[in-house]
């Protein structure tokens, strides 16, 4: 039994995740994600009323660092792995503005 996710949804998620998908992958992922989601749906059977969500494995707080400068990289070190650079900048296709 398979609980398919529609191709539109798969494509939308692919866009959000910035992964180009061909039609065959959309079909396959629709099927596989559907199966997995059907599986994880079993959680709905559990009553979690009033249960606090647990985002961290061990709950600690106020771990702070002093505002004291440490070591930075040189521009060459920073850009050593860059697939493309323009002088001391990382280089990308033309974009508009800042984020």
């Amino acid at each position: 039994m398979s609980n398919k996710i529609t191709p539109e949804v798969v494509r939308h998620i692919g866009k959000l995740a910035r992964i180009e998908l061909d039609d065959q992958q959309v079909e396959m992922l629709g099927r596989q994600l559907g199966d997995i989601l059907r599986y994880v749906d079993k959680l709905q059977a559990l009553n979690t009323d009033g249960v606090a969500p647990m985002a961290h494995a061990v709950e600690i707080h106020n771990v702070l660092a002093d505002d004291a400068p440490g070591q930075s990289l040189t521009a060459d070190e920073a850009l050593a792995n860059a697939p493309a650079r323009d002088n001391d900048f990382f280089m990308v296709p033309k974009v508009l503005g800042d984020s």
């Binding site: 994880v40 959680l43 709905q44 979690t48 606090a52 969500p53 647990m54």
Partner: peptide
């Protein structure tokens, strides 16, 4: 439905 639910179940497991 998924993520938040899972965090709550995580608490139950713990």
């Amino acid at each position: 439905a998924y993520y938040l639910k899972a965090l709550k179940v995580r608490r139950l497991i713990k």
